[in-house]
Design a protein around this nucleic acid. Sequence first.
DNA 1: TCCTATAATTTGGTCAGACCACCTGACCAA
DNA 2: TTGGTCAGGTGGTCTGACCAAATTATAGGA
Lengths: 236, 236
Amino acid sequence: MDVNPISMKRVYQSVIEQFIGLLGSGQIKSGDRLPPERILAEKFKVSRASIREAFRAMEVIGIIDVRAGGGSYVTDLNIVPFITTIAPLFWRTVSREEDLLDFRRLLETEAARLAAARGNPEHIDRLEDAVQQMRVSLRQANLEMGEEADIRFHKLLFLCSENEILIKAGECVSCLLENSVRLGRARIMKTAAQAEILLEQHEQILDRIRQGDSQQAALAMEDHLAFVRQTLQRKD
Amino acid sequence: MDVNPISMKRVYQSVIEQFIGLLGSGQIKSGDRLPPERILAEKFKVSRASIREAFRAMEVIGIIDVRAGGGSYVTDLNIVPFITTIAPLFWRTVSREEDLLDFRRLLETEAARLAAARGNPEHIDRLEDAVQQMRVSLRQANLEMGEEADIRFHKLLFLCSENEILIKAGECVSCLLENSVRLGRARIMKTAAQAEILLEQHEQILDRIRQGDSQQAALAMEDHLAFVRQTLQRKD
DNA sequence: TCCTATAATTTGGTCAGACCACCTGACCAA
DNA sequence: TTGGTCAGGTGGTCTGACCAAATTATAGGA
């Protein structure tokens, strides 16, 4: 006998599904304020507790933002809270931070390759801004500012790749690395001498992207990451 | 003025944090049965509703499995329920399925490269098993069996890479692709003629991994994925 | 003795109602 | 204008209850 198993869907799951559906059909969108829990409970004909359980799940998923006393708001799919929550677990499961750095190299070289291939002028201008800020911060010996520009450069690079998945994956890895102890220490290790080298490397990556040379852009990124990694390891 | 915003931590978040902590310290581990909600509520000195909200979040995260009437169990970090939930949303946000296929190519070629480099004999034997099953299913004209072996091969390949992040990322992408409409149709499109070609391609990948030739293994994988992709697009 | 069918217990799923804490905006007074 | 107060809206939490599924204990029959 071949029958379909009865799906014992729980109330909160059905609620989530409906919200996902509403998001998909555009009936609700990022920034919208959701009705109060009590009203929703009435509309869905379920208890407020069930609505709240659905909200907790959607909060972890990263599609709503619930503010005590201020209502609930739809947000863009945001994986940061999720990653932050599981990060401590992650460092138990994943023994080798090495793996994460390898993975980042993979993502960023591909991002550089795609950025060069796509060559969107608007995006490249924003990369230029970030590099410019690095130059300024080097002159002013403002390490913090340089740090910020560095992070921005790498984030922008993912945007330049124009591959949505790559962008999201990049966010995940950055988020995980920020939760890493070693990277935390790494920030402080940036000296003025290193800042100069880093600036040159970023300039080179940018130049090659501007020239539309995928192969060379990827190689420049590879060199840059190898340098960063080597620096981190030497200080251990 | 530089001040830090006050973080209003909610009860359910504290509960999750404690559970993550217990998982990290090994006081609870995968397979363990958690105490009943009512008991936990007593121990944590919070209401059952708060415990339940924490459970909903942990369920979405993929670290517990809650069975009605049967208790709650700790599981290995399982991203499948999470991905399945957001998949419908994803296909709205990510306009181009192209991006996902590009990303998969990136991951799988890297996995092939690493698998060849690591060359763990135990892992390679399991790859051989999968290919063997593809041979058998081809002789028996059992497309379904071949399909299953194919999936297993790609999953095993990620394991061969021995990079935890790559393995997890592979799971995510596979899960997303399984939720894709086009791939669903794609399964049926496998004819006997194609099965023969696919078998050859997998054999070639395996051979090159066995020879420890990273470069060639990656290229073989690239060829394979290009073929798969081309086949999918032709049928549109 | 062993197995099975049934009853009792355990445990998660849901609901209703209550109270508190926080946010917002309106109104008032210095 | 500035700051304080207050009321209403809204999320955060708790309590207690009942239902339904799964498990366990139990009694009866082979």
